[in-house]
Amino acid sequence: MSDDKYWDDARGDVDIASTRALSRRSVLQLAGAVTASTTIPEAFANTTPAAAPTPAAAIAAKVSFSVNGVRHSLELDPRQSLLDVMRERLELTGTKKGCNQGACGACTILVNGKRIVSCLTLAAMHSGAEITTIEGLASNGDLHPVQEAFIKHEGFQCGYCTPGQIISAVGCIAEGHAGSAEEIQFWMSGNICRCGAYPGICAAVADAAGRN
């Protein structure tokens, strides 16, 4: 199966939908291309989907940060969490909203190399930050070793907690907390998997840590 199929779904038979889906697809392709090169075309750095709603009469905050190597300068409602900005504004829907209360870990991203839950932080507080989401792990179409290990070891079922688990695993390995099975279990306990793919997740983290 290919991702084209989902985009076909997104187009459906609804015209408005198709314009959105196409614009989004081009944004994603663009992001991929930018990750691959070292310079960021200025014209694209500010790319935000045309339809991003500007809140009427809300107080605006300005923030500029880089996501997966692409710089974004945004004017936004200060109430917006980093998670909502990723999902609703930048169309980076790989980061998941599970509980929106810091109690599940599905929204885990890396900010300046550290894993955090993006639901409990305001986007307006991250000027200058270097942010990595699941969309930024693979490079040139090559999966990150942790991504590969998750497939190999069945580290997921439904896939919804998976981006958070994978980002968290990248953080866990970088912290040096992947030395033993029990250590991995302890340091991966901030990511709930309701499907119960924990044994696969542990095996994947151990495997990827060993290869690093």
């Binding site: 939908a17 339809a51 609703e88 169309e91 190999k152 997921f156 896939g159």
Partner: peptide, 25 residues
């Protein structure tokens, strides 16, 4: 191995709330 594995580990698998539409409320 899961045929949708790559989509799930890269964040490309789309769940209901992720089908954002133009002019969406």
């Amino acid at each position: 191995a899961r045929v949708d594995g790559r989509d799930k580990v890269t964040g490309r698998a789309l769940y209901a709330a992720e089908f954002n539409q133009s002019n969406q409320a």
